[in-house]
Design a protein around this nucleic acid. Structure first.
Lengths: 99, 99
DNA sequence: TAAAAGCACTTTGAATTACAAAGTATATTA
DNA sequence: TAATATACTTTGTAATTCAAAGTGCTTTTA
């Protein structure tokens, strides 16, 4: 039998990654600057957490041109949504010690 | 205005400390061995997380004699319960992006 | 039009955190 | 009495997190 904490996803343990995912769960897409302001982090720090979530394929990046400038937006992938919901369920179960 | 992630309590970011607190929220008291088995961690690791929560006065230790042997049990303090509930509320707010 | 500033990063290095393993003291069981 | 168990502490390392600085491009400002 798996313990409660093993069902928690390590990718979402960090508050910033949790914040990124939360933002991308309620908003179809969010850009870099908005995330940076929402989470109040340095851009280097944000970029590295974004990269971590990207590598896991929990979030996807879209780069498009607005005139000559690139605009980068992020969104949760299907997998990311599934895993995040699992994580939340595991959290809930642990807190309520159900099962 | 405080961002969502600032309202999360760093003490509860780690999964093991989160697990300890969860266990102590639903059980009046839990002993070392039970926590160790519940969380499936080495005793050194568990002890250090317990110490961290103790220093913050989120949990309290009770040592009593059962015959000649000491029995150690842990329980959440009033402060610990308050802070944990705040943390859960902050988590919820962040996930639902309310406020 | 040259300089400054903004955006979205990457790289670097350092501080913090988390962890296993080993050691300790006491008590119990074989 | 030797082995095992409990509840730790100590030590050292590995992993994680983070700020700061640097980069390349674009836009704004003087």
């Amino acid at each position: 039998m798996k313990s409660f904490i093993d069902r928690l996803n390590k990718a979402f343990e960090n508050r910033i990654r949790l914040g990124i995912m939360s933002a991308l769960m309620v908003n179809a897409s969010v850009d870099f600057l908005a995330l940076k302001e929402l989470l109040d982090v340095t851009d280097g720090n944000l970029a590295s957490h974004i990269t971590a979530l990207e590598k896991l394929e929990y979030i996807a990046v879209k780069k498009e041109f607005v005139g000559k400038k690139t605009k980068t937006t992020y969104m949760a992938t299907k997998l990311g949504r599934i895993e995040f919901n699992h994580h939340l369920k595991a959290l809930e179960d642990m807190i309520r010690q159900s099962e």
